[in-house]
Design a protein around this nucleic acid. Sequence first.
RNA 1: GUGGUCGUAGCUCAGCUGGUAGAGCACCGGGUUGUGGUCCCGGGGGUCGCGGGUUCAAGUCCCGUCGGUCACCCCA
Length: 436
Amino acid sequence: MPISGFPEWLPPQRMIEQYVLDRIRTTFELYGFAPLETRAVEPVDTLLSKGETSKEVYLLRRLQEDPDQKSDDNLGLHFDLTVPFARFVVENAGKLNFPFRRYQIQKVWRGERPQEGRYREFLQADIDVVDRDTLPFHYDTEMPLVIGDVFRGLPIPRATILVNNRKVCEGFYRGLGLADTDQVLRTVDKLDRIGPEKVADLLISTAGASRRQAEACLELASISAGDGSFADAVRKLGVDDPLLDEGLAELLQVVETAGRLAPGLVRAELKIARGLDYYTGTVYETQLQGYERYGSICSGGRYDNLAASGTERFPGVGISIGVSRMLGLLFGKNALAVSRKVPTCVLIALPDEEARPGCDAIAAALRGRGISTEVAPVPAKFGKQIRFAERRGIPYVWFPGEPDTVKDIRSGDQVEADAAVWEPPAEDARPRITQQ
RNA sequence: GUGGUCGUAGCUCAGCUGGUAGAGCACCGGGUUGUGGUCCCGGGGGUCGCGGGUUCAAGUCCCGUCGGUCACCCCA
């Protein structure tokens, strides 16, 4: 029986997932991010102090547990990869070289009510850079470029990375005279769901805003541009605040750098807020074209205060691809296809059981040259054996004989072949993943 | 965690106001005594998600539960 929120893919989907993970990993390493894996559990205190609501954390507990055990060493499954990473950095600061760039591709768990693209167990692929004391801003501009590179190499719809900066919002709200900037942010974040009228009402009733202040917040949130023009639009609103200026300069740098290096990838979108958690500056969200209503498939941001030990601080910036969400959505629309259901490229036909050692030798010769090969399970009629291959999408059937022949069962072409030298065309060597 | 909605064969679904289950595709076998895909013939498969209730009788009505999905919450 399936368990709600714990998806299990069939082999074709898993093959697509592994292909995607390979692309992600090689691209991350191309940018010099070092691999890291952290344990699945953290002390509950660590998880809860970083802004996650307790009801979403899964606890780790033995079946027979001493009820008197100390509550402060309770363990919970991590709900993202950034919090464990921050803990890891503080713990291993002496052994790491800063700035430290790492990637982490792991399962995370959240006790939510699942729906399409939302699971309780899912894969994230995360990159972060952390430094001691201060982290140069140019890393904030690098994150979307890495992700753009990953997505460009995948057979998926176009992705747009929406960027904002908390300093812009907070500075703007402060400059307007609003004190509870967090509450304003959280309310504005609901814009897409409840609409501008209700947001304005909420700002007035819960964040102490006047009608005019609420409208200014909405005007700010409505600004969106693929180039630096957003900055003028913000300034036109006539609000003045040093934090706002700082935020605008940062956001401008992200948008203009991306505009130069990856045109069309990044958009300033002043309404995105990223809930409440630990972000202090740049924030990212990513939309897949045609899947906008399912929300972000890749998010992150700048966190200056997440990792700290005593007087030492380790500011960081990171972004995380929601691999399971992205694939779940694409699978749901049948947007991805794989050319065969198994890795096998060649099926060796088996004339009779006496021929099996010879067939195994042919298979070994092909495998020795990197060609995925299996021998037919039983010496059925050749028609059946071809069908066996066809059902699985295996493109070639090899007939032992004098001489051996190999048949491309898609075209029907059958040619003489020598297991010591024959090669499939490059496009048939591995299953191909294509966009539908 | 709260609420809505759906759950019949591997898949897509039909089954009217309750009268003890069907189609197409898929799968297996044969026609085709060792080279598939077309065509023809035949076949296997369902505790109608699960449990309980109402009824002479429940796939069909009621309750619960599990699962999918949607909205809230939150977010990858």
